[in-house]
Amino acid sequence: MVQQMTSLVVGASGATGRLLVEQLLDRGQRVKAIVRSPDKLPRTLLDHQHLTVIQAGIAEASDTELAEYVKGCDAVASCLGHNLTLKGIYGQPRRLVTDAIRRLCNAVKSNATERPVKFVLMNTAGNSNRDLVEPVSFHQKCVIGMLRLSVPPHADNEEAADYLRTVIGQTDQAIEWAVVRPDSLTDESAVSEYHAYPSPTRSAIFNAGKTSRINVAHFMADLIVDDDVWTRWKGQMPVIYNAGY
């Protein structure tokens, strides 16, 4: 029998965040969802007895409010991302995800917990895990370097993962983490077969694979709910691909 837990999901109204909320609710879990506009969530989710909707902007919430949001949560999951508009990509806040991760971690630490809180961050296969020696070609390094300088969301993704990797680290008593790295995202209506690897098995720039958003949500839910899956991947940055990619 799966133990009922409470998870806080930020970025819950996004394309993947909505699917993660649904995956968790379908498994009998309790979910707190932070959204700017509740009407972006399907009515079937809004009416669910185990969903608590928090209407707020994560960047505008005070430290006290964040501490209250994470209170009683066994897991925090971030599907935050920048809007793919000129303002979303080049406007403020340029470190939306990194700042949110840092502040949420501080909020977790401000609450005494009996066991470490799981922190699951959705990221990208274009970001390397610098705890490992991952195979990255010279040409890909050049492209990634240009993206880092010219596309703020990419640098934000890198810094957010690095915060968990280097500041929280592997021995924190309050937080355990995993960073999920999908490749090129696709929209599918149902979960399909997929595989997780410690590092990319192909170039995210020159030979990208595909990962459906619903598979990302399914894997993130597995990490939160299934202790065996968590034990396998905690403190790591698994890359996931749809089967056949």
Rank of each mutant, 00 (worst) to 15 (best):
G81H: 08
L132N: 09
A160R: 04
L132Q: 12
L147E: 10
L147D: 10
R103G: 12
A107G: 11
Q92F: 14
S128N: 07
F119T: 07
K118T: 01
D99Y: 00
L147H: 09
R94E: 11
D99P: 10
A161K: 01
D162T: 09
T85G: 04
A100G: 08
F119V: 09
G81C: 06
V108M: 07
L149P: 11
N129D: 10
Y90A: 01
D156H: 03
R130A: 05
G81V: 12
R102H: 05
L80R: 14
A100F: 00
C105R: 07
C142H: 09
H139E: 14
P152F: 05
N123R: 08
G88T: 11
H82A: 13
I101K: 03
N123E: 11
D131C: 10
R115S: 10
V136T: 15
L84S: 03
M122S: 06
L132V: 07
L84F: 08
E159F: 02
V133Y: 09
G91R: 07
Y90H: 06
H139Q: 14
V133L: 09
N111E: 12
A100K: 06
P116A: 03
L80Y: 14
N129A: 06
R95I: 14
P152D: 02
A161E: 01
S150E: 11
L96H: 09
G145A: 03
A155Q: 08
N129V: 04
P93T: 13
D156R: 01
P152R: 02
N123V: 12
N111P: 13
D156W: 05
Y163H: 03
T85L: 05
H82F: 15
L86V: 15
Y90Q: 02
C79A: 11
I101S: 04
L96C: 08
I101Q: 04
V143N: 01
C79M: 14
L147W: 11
H82S: 10
S137E: 05
A125Y: 00
L86W: 05
P153R: 02
A125E: 08
K109L: 01
P152K: 02
G145V: 04
F138H: 13
I101L: 04
L84I: 12
V133F: 08
G145Q: 03
S110A: 14
G91I: 14
A112L: 07
R103C: 11
V117T: 10
K109M: 04
I101C: 07
A107H: 13
V151S: 07
G81D: 02
G88C: 09
A160K: 04
L147P: 09
Q140E: 15
D162W: 00
